[in-house]
Amino acid sequence: MSRKILLLMAHPAIHRSTVNRSLFKLADQVDYVTAIDLYAEYPDHHIDIDVEQQRLRDHDVVIFQFPMYWYSTPAILKEWQDLVLEYGFAYGSEGKALHDKLFICATSAGGSEDTYCATGYNHFSVRALLQPLEQMASLTGMRYLPPFVLFDSRRAADGEALKTHQKRWRDLLVQLQQHDVDWSFADQAKRSENCLEQLFLRGETP
């Protein structure tokens, strides 16, 4: 198994980024990853639908990489969905272009992990907050993987957290390219947050 990965990164202030810029740079150096900086490509938000649809056709894994903005993606990723995931392409009786691709969000959140639960001030888990994307994946026939999250992101660069996260990110890209997903495990852990690493069947190919 060897999948090609499309990384769509949206960060409106990448020059101030500590986490997402480093992850994007790492991914850009990997030859089976096509890394796209959406704000660089479409600074005026005029997204080229044909180009983007062709990119989707050419890849097997789609990653949305973004910092959490008001519990969702930065605006351009929403615009991207609005324009690119057209009827007849991504959904509808003829719209099967995305079927069976893997979809995953790689995001960074300012709050610490314990704030993203019913008792924390953010009240919902990240996975719960990203449900619109999960449902988008569902409607377009993509297989949704639990989000890859870095919490407490503003302080991550100060300690070891960012380094650990970068290591996990490199491993994740390898797994997405090579390893099969244990879907029975995925279904069991359907609504859980921290099962991403256990999902992959290591080193096995059918």
């Binding site: 609005d82 324009l83 009827y87 007849g88 509808g92 009786s93 569902s138």
Partner: peptide
């Protein structure tokens, strides 16, 4: 339009009865 002819496409609604054909992919 439904079949995209335009070189410059902008957001447009899907056809009126499109929900009939949607099913739960899960």
């Amino acid at each position: 339009h439904e079949k995209h002819l335009s070189e410059d496409r902008v957001w447009a609604p899907p056809p009126k009865r499109y929900t009939d054909e949607l099913k739960d992919n899960d």
